[in-house]
Amino acid sequence: MASILYPLASLSQIEKTPSREDGIPEDLEEDLRAYGCKLIHQAGILLKQKQVAVAAAQILFQRFWFVSSMKQFGVGDVGMGALYLASKLEECPLRMRDLINVYDLLLQRASHSLSSKSDQDFRYHPMSYFGSTFYELKDALVLSEMQILKRLGFNVHVVLPYGTLISYLRILGLDKNTEACTRAWGYLNDAHQTPVYALYQIPTIICAAIYLTAMHLQIPLPASSPLSWWELFDTNEEDVLSVSGHIMRLYRERTAEERRRVVGLVTKKEVRRWLEENMTASK
């Protein structure tokens, strides 16, 4: 019984996240969360890490921002720590050195895209043998792993949605529809870039993924209020629509300016500078 009671953000944590308390606008926090999760995902692919570890890392990462501010911790460091920790929890530990190298590459590539030479092809420069980069990243990694544990109260229990998705698709008779399955699976994966796994119960998120799938593929499902199909899965319409909204906002076209802004705010230093500039600008 206890195994299904994974932690979820409380109402007060949802209403005012620590980052917003520190003056970070809601849309920026949302974009930074998504970007941090993309880095985790990319690192996971480069390291050939299992998807369960990547997904668990993204869930821990999302929970972290309900108890910590982006002014105190950078999304790059925390993402790295989350992936390292989740890999241990899922019994597929990573080597520190590999993870650090991959993050170094990802961050270099990100800063290349912001530089004046962004029109040229990106070339990775491995960190120097005698340089301090490795040790700095290693310290950041150990520290953020510890901070995640501490701030989540060591409750790192994570429940992943994939198995339940398959059951639901079977019940709805969609398990033979390959396109529907692929799409719903994809929405669940994309949802990891949003905070929904720290906000809603797994059945709700799965219903939202199926709901979006059914909408896009125009598959009719019994949906006449008050007895729509999701009632079967202990979910209500309001929550399905809210989760769907979180997922769909990921696909909103970002302006070039918005994209640059996110990539330039991976570290807490950059976030602090941004806050200073924008605080003074607003005054």
Binding site: L5, Y6, P7, L8, A9, S10, Q13, R63, F66, V67, L149, K150, R151, L152, G153, F154, N155, A198, Y200, Q201
Partner: peptide
């Protein structure tokens, strides 16, 4: 939903 524990630091 209310049965789930909140996210609580140590």
């Amino acid at each position: 939903r209310t049965r789930h524990p909140p996210i609580l630091p140590s």
